[in-house]
């Protein structure tokens, strides 16, 4: 569905994306993960033809940017910074975009209902809350039922509740067979959003793996600080016996956590009869 070869983007003097290759097959969901400034958003914009690029981009069989018009008909887009005409009503906005996408009449209302905004259809876009806007953006991206969705940080700037609502919506899309390209900088979200993940850094792919393996692949160091009651030295010995790097730290324990298995030390201690009162995770080396 999406094929990208040698994608490079220069913005001014900066090489923002540098020779990127990847492909997303139909029904697959690929996440672009990386810190801010890694070039994720620029990749999405290049795919849409919003920024000039070199290299090959093919969307749903249409070569970009030459066939951009046809290609974009197959792509729904949720931008990172939602920029919609704030003075239009939610329904009015969707109707305008629906007309541009030649979406069936009535679809805007149906979509509004489906993202839970039916009661807010007459409200000005500018008056919607952040979560509502994000859902509206998703509805806008779904106009015309495009097979490909490009979601740029769809959950950024949402509170936890709104984030889980939206994650559920996106999960529904995956279930419905959409091809997804999602950018995020939240490690925890990757596995919820995508099958596969590309780790981006400085405009290049640093790693590529399954979404579940990301933490392991990254090998991110983290330390657990546990406060438990009992003989701490015994606890350390138990943990070391199971292969963890652990030491007594004041009245508690410090354990080097293994990505993907952070809870394991706690489980081990509880099973051995220690009472774990508190736990704190310190990320980074």
């Amino acid at each position: 569905m999406i094929r990208v070869e040698g994608l490079s983007v220069r913005l001014g003097q900066a090489q923002v994306v540098d020779g990127l290759d990847f492909a997303v097959s139909a029904g697959e969901s690929l996440a672009l993960w990386g810190q801010n400034g890694a070039g994720k958003t620029t990749v999405i914009r290049a795919l849409l033809g919003l920024v000039p690029f070199s290299g090959q981009v093919v969307l749903a069989g249409h070569q970009m940017p030459g066939e951009g018009r046809a290609a974009r008909a197959h792509v729904g887009y949720v931008p990172q910074q939602l920029a919609y005409y704030e003075d239009m009503s939610a329904l009015g906005l969707l109707r305008y975009l629906a007309a541009l996408r030649a979406a069936p009449h009535g679809e805007p209302q149906a979509l509004l209902a489906q993202v839970g905004l039916a009661d807010h259809s007459a409200k000005a876009v500018g008056a919607l809350s952040g979560g509502m806007k994000q859902r509206l953006a998703l509805a806008a991206a779904l106009l015309g039922d495009p097979p490909i969705l490009l979601l740029d940080e769809p959950t950024a700037s949402l509170d936890a509740g709104a984030r889980s609502e939206l994650t559920a919506l996106i999960a529904g899309l995956r279930a419905a067979g959409k091809t997804l390209l999602v950018t995020t900088h939240r490690l925890a979200e990757v596995s919820a959003l995508a099958d596969r993940v590309l780790v981006m850094e400085g405009g290049r792919v640093r790693a590529s793996c399954g979404a579940q393996e990301l933490e392991a692949v990254l090998g991110l160091p983290a330390r657990l600080h546990l406060r438990a009651s009992g003989d701490m030295n015994q606890a350390v010995a138990l943990l070391r016996a199971e292969g963890f790097t652990a030491q007594v730290n004041g009245r508690g324990l410090q354990v080097e956590a293994v990505p993907g298995r952070r809870a394991a030390p706690v489980v081990l201690l509880l099973a051995a009869g220690f009472a774990v009162d508190d736990i704190q995770i310190e990320e980074g080396p």
Partner: peptide, 22 residues
Amino acid sequence: GLGDDGGRQQVAAPILPRGGAA
């Protein structure tokens, strides 16, 4: 008048799968 419905009402087939809607 842009964005007005023009009086036409029509129900479209749902796009999101049922389970997907919040």
